[in-house]
Amino acid sequence: MTITISISSTIGGSGKTTIACMFAHLLSANYKVLALDLCGQCNFTEVLLQDNTVRGTICDVLEIGNVTSYIVSIDENLHIIPGDQWICSSPSKFYIQGYKTPEVVFAMKELLNQAKTAYYDFVVIDTPSTSSKEVLNLSLSISDFAVMTYSPNKLQLIKSWLNKIKYVQDEFNPELRVGGILRTRFNDIEASHIFYNREVYRRHPEYCWNSIFHNSPLFSNIDSNSIKKVQVDTAFKAVYDELILRLLKTRKNGI
């Protein structure tokens, strides 16, 4: 059974794409992984693909209706459907055909679910920003396990994210599970960081990960070469280990 993990946030700069890259990279050491880039910035694609020249993207998948033709092999265990800066305009095709808003998400969901074949153990999704409503709903609608990256900022952002999860569960994907809130970009020096670090755990202890993705120069300019360095993997080990533990717990509880 393929497990689909989406990494999302309600604000830029939270390390969302870095987290997605590290999960895809480390999972592929032992499992078959498909990376799915649904973010218009396409950084997920840029980091994982050494050769950024691609013949097709996620927009081609949604336009032509063929998934397998646009999967690019990075290595034996890691494949990717490359991102596209115009991904946010893809739903317009379905609106032109007369689809209503929920039907657009269902149509795209049915198409991308074809990627969740028996070949892959995991699909890791880098989601778009919340400004792309249909594509964000799409990324969550095909996910089993949703993780939020939260960097020091308004705590209301967490409530907004949880409300979005609830909406997608009710409308598109009742099997979606909250994978938790991963605190990112925190340090132990700035007073605001210390406050938000403690406060988010106080308010959401059931969702907060124990591990924290701290600011580190190791991840400042991550690319297809640096992501393979032992020290990078070591620095990320606590976060990755907790991902596995949370997946195992969720599976045990019926995912």
Rank of each mutant, 00 (worst) to 15 (best):
R246I: 07
T2S: 06
L62E: 05
I189L: 06
R203W: 10
K166H: 07
S160P: 00
H214E: 13
D60K: 07
L140C: 03
N137Y: 05
A191L: 13
N173C: 02
I255E: 09
V135L: 08
L48H: 01
I255H: 00
G179A: 07
N163P: 02
L155A: 09
V72Y: 08
A29D: 11
E206D: 15
S89L: 14
L38S: 08
I87Q: 02
S224G: 04
A29K: 15
L78A: 09
L36V: 14
S226Y: 07
A35N: 04
S131D: 12
M108H: 07
M148W: 02
G13E: 00
P152F: 09
S92V: 15
K100Y: 10
R183D: 08
Q85I: 14
M148T: 00
I81P: 01
L38E: 06
S151K: 13
K109G: 06
R185P: 03
K229Q: 14
V200P: 00
A238Q: 12
E63Y: 11
N66S: 11
M148I: 04
F186Y: 15
K228Y: 04
I87W: 04
P82K: 04
T53K: 13
Y95P: 05
V200T: 13
E171Y: 01
T130N: 14
S92D: 12
G83R: 01
L243K: 00
F44N: 01
C88N: 14
Q85Y: 09
V105A: 01
S131H: 12
A146S: 13
T18W: 00
L140Q: 03
E46P: 01
A24N: 05
S216Q: 10
G40V: 00
I3V: 11
C88S: 14
G65Q: 06
S143N: 08
N66R: 13
I255T: 13
V104E: 03
N113L: 15
V67K: 04
L26P: 01
D75C: 07
G254M: 11
L243T: 05
A35C: 03
L247W: 03
I96A: 10
S73M: 07
W161F: 08
A24S: 12
D144K: 06
A191I: 14
R246Q: 08
T234I: 12
S14G: 12
T117W: 05
V123T: 14
L38G: 00
F122D: 04
V54L: 07
L136S: 05
G83K: 04
Q97L: 14
I125M: 03
I227A: 06
L248T: 13
T117H: 07
D144M: 03
D37Y: 05
I64R: 12
